[in-house]
Amino acid sequence: MIPVLIVGHGGFADGLRDAIEMILGGPQEGLMALALRPEEDPAELAGRVDGALSELGVEGDGGAVVLADLFGASPANAATSLLQRRPGLQIVTGANLPMALELLMLRETAEAPELAGIALERGRDAIRDAGAVVREAYARVRAEMQAGEDR
């Protein structure tokens, strides 16, 4: 099973993990969340990310997926800075709940690179204009009802 580490600013990582656990029904094995706190030196974060990965049992070129909140920001950079020593890391930014759920459900059958690809795809597809979806559907229903009444 591929370990997953969520990193982000403030309460993001814990919040995402909390939401995952609410939907999947409890604590997930091999899943950790790590926060960059306002008072923390970002330079120290790489060390903590490294430590968390070791705690998750990821050694050397072992595979793991890091979900980071923001591309180019300290939490994501802390993860990418480890790539030389940990070439098996997959680091996906713009972390969201749909991609995290997909990852966690597929990580027993897929390897880290494949999982990262799935996460990217699922994370993008899940961004929808729900208001427009419902508004358009309801407009269609109303039009059909109107047509029915006119007939």
Binding site: A130, V133, V134, E136, A137, Y138, V141
Partner: peptide
Amino acid sequence: QKTMLVAV
């Protein structure tokens, strides 16, 4: 409500 549930 019905339309909404089906749409999502």
